[in-house]
């Protein structure tokens, strides 16, 4: 991670049309943004495309970046908007559940799961948890992804989502309750923390 001063310098150079300055600026953010989008879409190809779209939007919209929020937060907001628009479009075209079901077999992590005999309890737990996470309502999943996986604070996530910190906190609490309900049958079988 670069310091804020260096970041602002790169932002100003990119605003003047220096593509390489922008590439340096986003280099550290590309992989985390990709991971966020992948968490929300469940598809590598879509995640790559949407990551590129996010960066392109950021470049063309850099003139509107006021530097009041962190560049990372601003980039996350663009990524979330791009992904939600994409998912909305997909759900209108095909039905979201159908779409997610369709892409699941392509997921290399889940492809590791072959037969029930080969699955250890740990793996079974992971698989179920992954599934439970994927099936959370979109706004809960988004909040928990931003905080748990992207490492944003409640206030940063609130800025990304355009809501209050209290709402973020409440959504994450609800998401955890749902995950707990879903994982209850497995909780006694896995190793205690």
């Amino acid at each position: 991670m670069m310091d804020k001063e260096q970041e602002l310098l790169l932002i100003n150079r990119a605003r003047r049309g220096e593509v390489e300055a922008f590439m340096t600026l986003i280099r550290t953010y590309q992989a985390p943004i990709y991971r966020l989008i992948y968490r929300l879409t469940g598809n590598r190809e879509d995640a790559a495309d949407l990551t590129q779209e996010t960066m392109l939007k950021a470049y063309t919209g850099l003139k509107n970046f006021k530097a009041r929020s962190r560049f990372n937060t601003w980039l996350h907001r663009i990524a979330v908007n791009e992904t939600l628009n994409f998912l909305d479009k997909m759900s209108r075209e095909k039905g979201k559940i159908e779409y997610l079901d369709e892409i699941k077999p392509a997921d290399p992590v889940l492809a590791m799961v072959a037969t029930p005999e080969e699955i250890s309890i740990e793996e079974e737990f992971k698989t179920e948890l992954e599934q439970a996470l994927a099936e959370l309502p979109a706004n809960y999943k988004l909040a928990i992804t931003l905080v748990v996986f992207q490492g944003l604070s409640h206030s940063e996530a609130a800025e990304v989502l355009g809501c209050s910190e209290g709402t973020v906190s409440w959504k994450i609490h609800e998401a955890r309750k749902m995950l707990r309900e879903r994982m209850r049958p497995y909780l006694g079988r896995v190793k205690e923390v």
């Binding site: 280099r27 590309q30 991971r35 590598r44 995640a47 992590v109 992971k126 707990r180 205690e192 923390v193």
Partner: peptide, 28 residues
């Protein structure tokens, strides 16, 4: 205790890394 267990497993879930970051950068 249950939430902590879930949280630890959640954070250990495999993350998807871009398959070809260089190609992604070149395209961008």
């Amino acid at each position: 205790q249950e939430l902590k267990t879930i949280e630890v497993k959640l954070r250990k879930l495999p993350t998807a890394e871009p398959e070809n970051l260089a190609a992604l950068e070149d395209g961008l």
